[in-house]
Simulated assay, not measured.
Amino acid sequence: MRWSVACLIGLAACQPVQTSQNAAFSPTYEGIRTDFLDGDLVNFNVTMRGARTEADLRAYAECAAAQYTLIRGYGFARHVRTTTKMQGGKWHADAVYTISPALPRGVSTIDAEVAVANCKELGIPTV
């Protein structure tokens, strides 16, 4: 059974992603650029084709953030902001996350280990 990326945050009302929806979904993930900003802030720029909605693009950015968090030796990330745009048939996202060794304050927190496992299950690439 496959779960939506939103389940990563621990939402109790998550439902399985429908198989028929996945059958029609065949995105092309075109790359991730990671920029360490300052302190614990990290910027992720991701590009993809074939996104159904902005949520697919945001999931791609979240997967990149989760893997980067683990690479840096931390366990948690917190979403700060994401902007998206469609240009020339490609979706682009500019997302900023904080990374930390302990669970940060806020509602948009991510357990990086759980998130990366879910991204792999869903076939979403990471850094």
Rank of each mutant, 00 (worst) to 15 (best):
H79E: 09
F76H: 10
M48Q: 02
C14M: 07
L8V: 14
A24E: 10
V17R: 07
E113V: 05
K90D: 08
A102G: 03
G75C: 01
F36Y: 14
Y29S: 04
T19L: 14
L37V: 10
T109E: 10
V42H: 09
A102L: 01
T34H: 06
M48D: 07
S100F: 05
A66S: 13
Q87D: 12
R78G: 07
R52L: 14
T69G: 02
R78N: 06
A6S: 11
R2P: 15
R81D: 13
H92A: 06
R33W: 02
Y29M: 07
R52F: 12
M1Q: 04
R2M: 13
A102V: 09
S100L: 02
P104Y: 01
N22M: 08
T98F: 01
A66H: 03
S108C: 09
D38W: 11
Q18T: 14
A6V: 10
D35R: 13
L122N: 09
F44S: 06
V80K: 09
P16D: 04
T98W: 05
A61L: 01
S20T: 07
P27I: 08
T34G: 05
I32K: 03
H79S: 10
T83A: 08
K120G: 10
R58H: 09
G88D: 13
G106K: 04
V80G: 01
F76V: 02
G88I: 03
F25D: 04
R52N: 10
R52T: 06
A6R: 15
L11F: 14
Q67R: 11
T126N: 04
T98N: 05
P125F: 02
D111A: 08
T84V: 15
Y29V: 02
S26I: 13
I9N: 15
A13K: 15
G123C: 00
N118D: 11
Q18N: 15
C119T: 00
H79K: 12
T98L: 07
A55N: 13
D38S: 12
A115R: 00
G89S: 04
Y68S: 08
Y74M: 13
P16K: 03
T126A: 07
S100N: 03
V107M: 15
D111P: 03
C63N: 01
T126Y: 09
K85V: 14
T84N: 12
R78C: 03
N118F: 11
L37G: 01
G73M: 02
Q67H: 13
V114H: 08
L122C: 07
